[in-house]
Simulated scan of single mutants.
Amino acid sequence: MLISGRGSNMAALLYASQAPDCPYEIVLVASNVPDAPGLVLAAAEGVPVFARAHTGMKRAEFDAVIDAELERRGAEFVALAGYMRLLSDGFVAKWAGRCLNIHPSLLPAHKGLDVHEAVLAAGETVTGCTVHLVTPALDDGPILGQVRVAVLPGDTAETLADRVHYAEHQLYPRVLADLVSAADSTAAWLERVRSLALALPEAEEKLSHGSPGFFVRGGKFFAYFSRDHHGDGITALLVKASGVEEQAMLIDQDPDLYFRPAYFGPSGWIGIRLDLGDIDWRHVEDWLTRSWRDSAPKRLASLPF
């Protein structure tokens, strides 16, 4: 989780995570404000914390520092909880579909700051809060959940904010739990593979051999998402090894993770199982990048990234 202040939504997510049936755990609370009160609360509850002031650093440079800490702790999702800093496009792209935020209005209404003042100025009788996925545009990502809150006669921005906070604390843990739970589904695995594959230069997708396939424009296929291919009951990523010798070596080293896929195996492709639990997405990303380089035209294969 990323915070900048007292972290009341962070606290709500943290305490909800202690329920026996909660599908997520908090591995890090990080802040761009070293003396943020929420860090004290998180540390007192035994959650690892990290803080560094962003002063004097470019946005992408600072986000790279935060990203390195997230990776070090093994984070798979990022929840913004009062994080008062815009994220760089590169950070948002890397965590696409896995970074979420809560906003104190019924989006798309009243984006940005001073939300409660805007609600009262408009004479509205209902407001609320929204949890959404983070995209480069401010408060503009796909909506994951909302709660409505009545505006009462005589409300001030402060009294309205208090009640919206209660709603936020109920909504955010439920939505995060749903998102994390859904990430274990086959459809979620495909979306994750797709986002990683299509982030590579000039990568495109089309159905091939009955599976979603990814290829380089002007080049060849470099990966397939295989689901029960030839009735094997396995969900896996198929990528190019250097040949049948490396294929055999990989299978010998880890026969649970790697396998020789039907049809593709004789050509040296390797299958990497995704249905074993605890997917190592960095490992998947590395294989996609390697396979992409082996398939891309020379004008692209030498690109540094």
Rank of each mutant, 00 (worst) to 15 (best):
Ile143Pro: 00
Ala75Ser: 11
Leu86Asp: 03
Val119Cys: 03
Leu70Pro: 04
Arg148Phe: 03
Val151Leu: 11
Gly112Glu: 13
His116Val: 08
Pro142Leu: 04
Leu87Cys: 13
Val78Asp: 02
Asp140Asn: 14
Ser105Leu: 08
Val134His: 11
Arg148Thr: 00
Val149Trp: 06
Ile143His: 12
Ala150His: 04
Ile66Ala: 15
Val65Asn: 05
Val131Arg: 11
Leu106His: 10
Arg73Gly: 07
Ala68Phe: 03
Leu100Phe: 15
Val134Arg: 09
Asp89Pro: 01
Leu80Ala: 12
Val119Met: 05
Phe77Gln: 11
Ile143Gly: 14
Ala109Asp: 15
Ala118Met: 12
Leu138Met: 15
Leu107Glu: 06
Tyr83Arg: 04
Leu133Cys: 05
Leu152Ser: 11
Ala150Ile: 06
Val147Glu: 15
Asp140Ile: 03
Leu138Asn: 08
His132Val: 06
Ile143Met: 15
Ser88Arg: 09
Thr125Phe: 01
Cys129Asp: 02
Glu76Asn: 13
Leu133Pro: 00
Gly145Ala: 05
Arg72Asn: 12
Gly123His: 02
Ile66Pro: 00
His116Trp: 03
Glu71Lys: 13
Val126Pro: 06
Asp89Trp: 00
Leu86Lys: 12
Pro136Asn: 11
Leu138His: 12
Thr125Cys: 02
Lys94Ala: 15
Val92Thr: 14
Val92Arg: 00
Gly154Arg: 14
Gly112Tyr: 13
Val134Asn: 08
Leu70Arg: 11
Ile66Asn: 07
Ser88Leu: 03
Ala157Trp: 02
Gly141Thr: 13
Ala81Cys: 15
Pro136Met: 08
Thr156Val: 05
Pro136Gln: 10
Thr125Val: 10
Leu87His: 11
Ala75Val: 13
Pro142Tyr: 02
Ala93Gln: 14
Ala81Ile: 02
Val151Gln: 07
Glu117Met: 04
Pro142His: 05
Glu117Leu: 03
Leu100Trp: 09
Thr135Tyr: 05
Ser88Trp: 00
Val119Ala: 01
Val149Glu: 04
Ala96Asn: 10
Ser105Trp: 07
Glu124Met: 13
Glu69Leu: 00
Val78His: 02
Ala122Asp: 15
Asn101Gly: 10
Gly141Val: 13
Thr135Trp: 01
Val92Lys: 00
Gly128Ala: 04
Met84Lys: 09
Arg73Gln: 15
Gly90Asn: 14
